[in-house]
């Protein structure tokens, strides 16, 4: 269990983040979505490299400031840039951690969980970035601490690794761990955790993901049909505003629309343009062009979707075409709707 009470940090006369409180209980996962600066400051604070300006952090009842030894004994931290002993093989590295943390799990079990069995004799220096990431997750399994703090765990990893990471974090959660994710990627936050928060200079805001989704899902279906009938093909451009300029996009150009804090952002060929309409308005305008509201905070252009990935029984993502293979969350309820639209059921 992790408890953050009125934690605040300012450095050289500027506020990094104002006081905020949050609590993650046993068997709960949460994410803090923030800028890179806030994220790295938070990581330094959690790992004891920097102290808070005021407030306190407790891990299972042990205070960060006054009882670091016990605090650290209950906490696993995984940085985005973690080190590995590059000259060792995967198996040797895992055996080392197993002995260092006096874990009772066997290394074969760990290798199986992170799906590295076929690579266990390989040197770590010859692994890909994604495979190294899975080795880091092996450490989390061996440490077996009640609280985990992960920085960008699934950044830039391949789909298979993402699936492994999702599975491992689910398993850790089932074991009764509390997991906090720090990320700058909203999609990753929604994908990995149950509760998503946004932290910036204005404070901590919670995004009520599941709740509103349930409420809105009831009304959307008739709405879409309304428009589908009453608005036949019509020429409609979507305006986005950048500085003083207004740019007009043809709907088919848009890959997807993402909303963060009431601001909807159009994503066009990897660039992001803020749009003045709300997501609900955009949905009404875009549905006739083959767009689909796949999540409370996302509208996707179905023409650009290449793949529907099933991570676990009720966790899905959409993968877009193109080299960077952007993924977009697809919520459970919308999955059923999508299947229906595609005529799969």
């Amino acid at each position: 269990m992790i408890k953050i009470i009125n934690a605040e940090k300012s450095s050289s006369d500027s506020v990094v983040f104002p006081p905020f409180s949050m609590e993650i209980k046993v068997r709960e996962t949460a994410a803090i979505h923030s800028s890179l600066n806030v994220r790295s400051v938070l990581m330094d604070i959690f790992s004891g490299g920097m102290s808070l300006s005021s407030g306190s952090i407790e891990i299972s009842g042990n205070k960060l400031a006054s009882d670091f030894k016990n605090y650290n004994g209950k906490l696993s931290v995984m940085f985005l840039e973690e080190g590995l002993y590059e000259r060792l093989t995967v198996k040797e590295q895992i055996t080392f951690w197993k002995k260092l943390h006096l874990s009772s799990r066997t290394s074969d079990e760990i290798l199986r969980l992170v799906q590295l069995e076929h690579l266990k004799k390989k040197r770590i220096s010859s692994l890909t970035f994604s495979e190294k990431r899975r080795v880091h997750f092996a450490r989390l399994l061996l440490e077996n601490k009640p609280v985990l703090i992960l920085e960008e765990p699934d950044q830039n990893v391949d789909l298979e690794t993402r699936r492994v990471i999702k599975k491992v974090t689910e398993a850790l959660k089932e074991e009764g761990k509390s997991i906090l994710l720090l990320t700058g990627n909203m999609e990753s936050a929604l994908f990995m955790t149950e509760h998503v928060h946004r932290l910036d200079e204005k404070g901590l805001h919670r995004l009520d993901v599941e709740l509103e989704e349930d409420e809105s899902s009831g009304e959307e279906i008739p709405e879409r049909e309304d428009h589908g009938v009453s608005q036949p093909v019509q020429i409609e451009k979507i305006p986005a505003k950048i500085n003083e300029k207004i740019i007009l996009f043809n709907p088919p150009e848009i890959d997807f629309v993402e909303s963060s804090e009431g601001q909807s952002n159009l994503s066009v060929q990897g660039e992001v343009y803020p749009c003045t309409f709300t997501l609900n308005d955009l949905e009404k305008r875009l549905v006739p062009f083959g767009f689909f509201r796949c999540h409370r905070s996302y509208i996707v252009n179905l023409q650009k979707v290449r793949e529907v990935v099933t991570w676990t029984r009720n966790s899905y993502s959409l993968v877009l075409e193109g080299t960077d293979r952007t993924t977009i969350p697809l919520s459970k309820l919308k999955m059923a709707e999508l299947k229906e639209m595609l005529g799969l059921k």
Partner: peptide
């Protein structure tokens, strides 16, 4: 080398 490869931090944060 432990410092350069970021592994010393892992050791310092370990129970050792």
């Amino acid at each position: 080398e432990e410092k350069e490869k970021n592994t010393l931090r892992g050791l310092m944060l370990s129970p050792a």
